[in-house]
Design a protein around this nucleic acid. Structure first.
Length: 528
RNA sequence: GCCGACGUAGCUCAGCGGCAGAGCAAGGGACUCAUAAGCCCUUGGCCGGUGGUUCGAUUCCACCCGUCGGCACCA
């Protein structure tokens, strides 16, 4: 079954998210791709796959040095703090990577240098002058167009000096044809399709080499991965950052693990770094003689209340804050349900409250509550055995199958919103089923007790299936559903139990109150 | 300017050659197991505009109008 849906399915699955610059606390905008990757990773675990899910922080940037200085810290102390902050933020969202890479780790330095050596050996690195306007405050180069009236765009008082320095460059220009072939070789090498078209367009316009090192001398603080054979240079952002994906999967220290998980199944990235993941990275790997990724899934950005997320405008939401208010499952659900992965999507407190109330509390929570209550009231809390299914029961079973297949297909296509939409049709169908069978009426008729048993049994079973189907998205709530059904939460390999009568029999229920209690007060619209 | 997309119900979007769909929002109803929840019904669309291809176009093509991304060392 799984192999039909995903021809490359090998019993292993590897996925990465973009690594973040730890120059401040993570905001809700960072969360979408982490939560999406986590949901897909959890799904693969349920499928019984051995999963590697790599995340991390990009600590080698000169921006980090600047941020640390501003905070009066050493870069080491600063990145240690940020490391804790980021891990805590992802943990609060129930995002559980199997591997966490900091680019300052020795193993990553080894990985980046090894990759660099291989690319050098293939003749794709050369030395040339890099020229630009250098701002000592930013410790960064700007192009002439970047300057504002000759001043640094970040520091109006600074007039950046025109500097040239010898840097190393990667011969990206030589890889246009091979990259085009690679992208054309798989429909879903880049998803969604419009991103693929965009990248092919870039290739047609011609590729330029990019610099992969910077002089280390800038302001004395040694920071970054030294270029092999030239200690005066450190690797410049992309060469170093992209290599984290290799580091996390065991390159070069753990060849067994690396062989098992590389090439990675999917890199999940934001649309802003499409070019680097779809062109720079595959070209670097081709040069190094390493297999290229199977897929890059590009997601859009989140807006907040219809506006760009911006710290300077104060248009930000701290994930921890909304998690505290609505619960982690509601935040995950809203991110995954409301935001089309392929384009930008809006997030707002109102929308979060709406999803919480409509989908989670009313549809799902209330469904579980009424089922558990009826089994309690009519059958002493023990789920009865089903009798012969009728048409309605067969429809319900069919609906469950459709929901499961939809979830599978849509997750494979990186459309978690569609996957959830499909699962919710089963949630709604189960509520409808209860209205059609009206167990509360059957309970009053002595001759209808067998029908009541069947109805309750199918409703309980639907809840059990829903618990498994929803578990990649809202693991906490899914486990609570299982808990009230008196069964274990979904475990690795349990996806196949997401069908009627394919799982452990439900016996004694364990009522525990509303899954998603009604929100206390109406959420006030956020003032503009 | 160039490249790429998008304009379908009040909102968010699906459909992409054969009688316009979903969820939310709005209005009405029957019920009572349940978190005043759930269920049923209804309202609501010249499918951006104009031409063309076709027996037939929301769906394909061209142009126009409008909106938005990208155009490379800022991640």
């Amino acid at each position: 079954m799984s192999d039909q849906l995903n021809p490359t399915h090998t019993g292993r699955f590897s996925v990465t998210t973009a690594i973040d610059y730890p120059n401040g606390a993570p905001h809700i905008g960072h969360s979408l791709e982490k939560v999406a990757a986590d949901a897909v990773a959890r799904y693969h675990v349920l499928r019984g796959d051995e999963v590697a899910f790599v995340m991390g922080n990009d600590e080698n940037s000169q921006h980090v040095v600047v941020a640390a200085q501003k905070a009066g810290e050493t870069p080491e102390a600063w990145t240690d703090q940020m490391d804790v902050a980021f891990r805590r933020a992802w943990d609060a969202l129930d995002v559980r990577p199997t591997d966490w890479v900091r680019t300052t780790e020795p193993r990553h330095v080894r990985a980046a240098q090894e990759l660099y050596r291989r690319v050098v050996a293939n003749g794709d690195i050369y030395q040339a002058a890099y020229a630009g306007y250098y701002c000592p405050n930013c410790n960064n180069f700007y192009s002439e167009e970047d300057l504002v009236n000759g001043h640094c765009p970040q520091h109006a008082s600074v007039t950046p000096e025109y500097l040239e320095e010898e840097n190393y460059f990667f011969r990206l220009s030589a890889y246009g044809d091979r990259l085009r072939e690679l992208i054309l070789s798989r429909d879903d090498f880049i998803v969604p399709a419009h991103r693929r078209a965009e990248v092919l367009g870039w290739i047609d316009q011609g590729l330029r080499d990019f610099s992969v090192s910077r002089s280390q001398r800038q302001d004395g603080i040694a920071w970054g991965v030294p270029v092999p054979g030239d200690d005066s240079q450190v690797m410049y952002v992309w060469f170093d950052a992209l290599t984290t994906y290799l580091t996390g999967l065991g390159f070069p220290d753990d060849p067994e693990r690396f062989d098992a998980f590389w090439p990675v199944d999917t890199h999940v990235v934001g649309k802003d770094i499409t070019r680097h993941h779809c062109l720079y990275w595959p070209a670097m790997l081709l040069s190094a003689g390493l297999p290229t990724p199977r897929q890059v899934a590009v997601h859009g950005f989140l807006t907040l209340n219809g506006r760009k997320i911006s710290k300077t405008d104060g248009n930000v939401i701290d994930p921890a804050e909304v998690v505290a208010e609505f619960g982690v499952d509601a935040v995950r659900y809203t991110l995954l349900r409301d935001v089309s992965f392929s384009s930008d999507g809006d997030f707002s407190r109102e929308q979060l409250a709406r999803r919480y109330t409509d989908d989670l509390a009313n549809d799902l929570g209330n469904l579980l509550n009424r089922v558990v209550a009826m089994v309690g009231r009519y059958r002493g809390g023990v789920a009865p055995a089903a009798g012969e299914p009728g048409d309605l029961e067969r429809e319900l079973v069919e609906m469950a199958r459709t929901a499961r297949v939809t979830a599978e297909q849509q997750l494979a296509a990186w459309a978690p919103d569609r996957a959830l939409e499909g699962i919710w049709t089963l949630v709604r169908r189960t509520n409808q089923y209860l209205e059609e069978r009206q167990p509360w009426k059957l309970a009053k008729r002595p001759e209808a007790q067998a029908d009541l048993d069947t109805t309750l049994a199918f409703a309980v079973e639907a809840a059990r299936v829903i618990s498994i189907l929803t578990s990649p998205f809202i693991p906490g709530a899914a486990a609570k559903i299982a808990g009230q059904l008196g069964i274990a939460p979904a475990a690795p390999g349990d996806w196949s139990a997401a069908a009627f009568w394919a799982g452990p029999p439900v016996g004694q229920l364990v009522p525990a109150g509303p899954l998603f209690p009604k929100l206390e007060e109406a959420i006030e619209p956020v003032a503009p």
